[in-house]
Write a protein that binds this DNA or RNA. Structure first.
Lengths: 336, 336
DNA sequence: TTGAAAGCGATACCAT
DNA sequence: ATGGTATCGCTTTCAA
């Protein structure tokens, strides 16, 4: 692969001049510029971004840490960051973190070594302390889907509790009286927060969520199916079901219908996340929209901004997003 | 951010020694090694991957070009490459190409500038000539989902025609006699090849695919719905429907059922791709599995291999994958 | 076992 | 308008 020196030699100019041509620098003679260009073409010259990063101290990359690309939720997250990268002529460096704290840390370290200009990190396993330490050392680092008070100006997150409350209000407004709930068995605290918001608001509204009608399962379709079977087995009446996420909700619906329970005729079901799936299901799922792509864009822009500005952490900003109710077909008014 | 010099200075050794410690080099005194390590810790030293890439001439990155991350198909592709990257202690550099030839080329160029060690490129817009030229210049470049004879040892692709044939055989084996088809209106040639394989095989089997029962639409759920409406409007009988992809197939099913046509009772529907969706739909979709993640892994490994080996292009290898029929619930035997 | 120094491929400042 | 050169942070001989 040819270098700037090769181009300079063939074109009969200095590397300084070639550099100017590459970067559309000022003051280059028209003839010279043309000649250099044609040599670049001829040699198939491509500037070396690593060398450039070394001297300019900017890598024009944004790093993203997510557990896994195949989850559409994280793919949307990455996509949001990619949009910002494109808009700034930068590129996405992806670091998947799988499930352990160790690999989350390693994923971040790899990005650090690349000297990314900005970092959007989704971490559930690292401790608050580890992340605070990191955030302090790295200006352009922003956490997404995590709320840490000490560095809240570097956290972009969703108000999960409010999501639970919105669901409660929605079902209440449909005159439901008997509630049930399916949650995730993984304690990464989102499930608990959502459920808590839901239960509290229900109480506020004068209802009651029976503890034995709250089932935890794997947060996927099959988990939803299993949890629903357990729910049905309780033989206690319920007409409104709040489910941890859309995949589980779809599983729940299919099990309900397999048992002759109509949705939303007999039971209203509400999911969470508003992933693609929810629009394809039948009945189409009522759910809470999680604007992850928008949040990711915001996080990326914030990270980029922080990198340039020194410590603006005096800022009192709070980057909380609210889930939005998307009424589709799986919830309806209660019929006695 | 501290550099190797800082570490050397504080530790009272030369940068050469620090370098040896970083890379677990041989011949370093135990005391020295320990001291250097502790200084690295103390200073929060992180080696600069760009500088390292410059001198070693390897970036330990694999570049991927895909149109868009939000399409689960491409997310799976990227995930396959990421697996290989992880396995080799490398990282994923992502370059999204959107839709135009220009931006596809630009996406590739950006990766070239980064001096990725390997490249997995999904390109539908660039010409054969452009890609051949590229493949010749860049040893570690492999095309995925594209078949170009001149560089077939650098192409990993799926036999779409065979997919069509498999679908035809499946529906024939279920005693169907009247066929219809929904295809994509975008001529990136996959649709035509699939359809062609389907129609040809049908003819082989003594059937006939009426041209007016072949409808083209947008390759998404809504497109599937619209096409199905048009199909129904023809008022010609059909009991077997081959659809370009799963999203369209799910749209087709919902429109059929909205019109009182049961799936698979009245009409059998078969999709293509086997994306997540197909397992969540009701009835669960019979489809053709497109092993894109596996193909992507293969492509990445091939790219890595080619980078090391010089020109092994004399190799007569052919990297064709076959789609696999996944029977679920949307197809059934024809009932008169 | 350790250090000095060349060099990777660019940029940018200082001359001319 | 153009060239010379120090420099970015690191690896890697070659000497000591």
């Amino acid at each position: 692969m040819s270098t700037i020196k090769d181009v300079a030699r063939v074109a009969g100019v200095s590397i300084a001049t070639v550099s100017r041509v590459i970067n559309n620098g000022p003051k280059v003679g028209d003839k010279t510029r043309a000649r250099v260009f044609s040599v670049m073409q001829e040699l198939g010259y491509t500037p070396n971004a690593n060398a450039r990063a070394l001297v300019t101290q900017t890598s024009t990359t944004i790093g993203v840490v997510i557990p896994d690309l195949t989850d559409p939720f994280f793919a949307s997250l990455a996509n949001g960051v990619d949009k910002v990268a494109r808009a700034n002529n930068m590129q996405l460096l992806l670091s998947t973190s799988l499930l352990t704290a160790e690999s989350e840390m390693q994923a971040i370290n790899l990005l650090l070594e690349r000297r990314c200009d900005a970092f959007v990190v989704h971490s559930k396993k690292l401790t608050d302390e580890q992340l605070i330490d990191l955030a302090q050392r790295v200006p352009g680092l922003v956490l997404i889907d995590r709320q840490i008070e000490a560095i809240k100006h570097k956290c972009v997150w969703l108000d999960n509790a409010e999501g639970g409350r919105i669901a409660a209000r929605h079902l209440d407004s449909l005159q439901h009286e008997n509630f049930a709930c399916i949650t995730s068995k993984y304690q990464i605290d989102d499930p608990a927060v959502r459920l808590n918001g839901f239960a509290k608001e229900l109480t506020q509204l004068g209802h009651h969520l029976p503890t034995d009608l709250t089932i935890a399962a794997e947060p996927n379709q099959q988990g939803g199916e299993i949890a629903t079977q357990q729910l049905i087995a309780k033989k206690k009446p319920f007409s409104a079901l709040f489910v941890y996420n859309d995949a589980m909700a779809i599983g729940a619906i299919s099990t309900l219908e397999d048992n002759g329970i109509r949705v939303p005729g007999d039971v209203s079901v509400i999911g969470f996340d508003d992933v693609l799936l929810s629009r394809y299901s039948r009945p189409k799922l009522t759910t809470l929209n999680y604007p992850i792509e928008e949040m990711a864009q915001h996080a990326a822009e914030l990270a980029l901004f922080n990198r340039d500005k020194p410590n603006t952490q005096a800022s009192n900003d709070n980057f909380i997003y609210l889930p939005r109710l998307v009424k589709r077909e799986s919830t309806a008014a209660y019929r006695k």
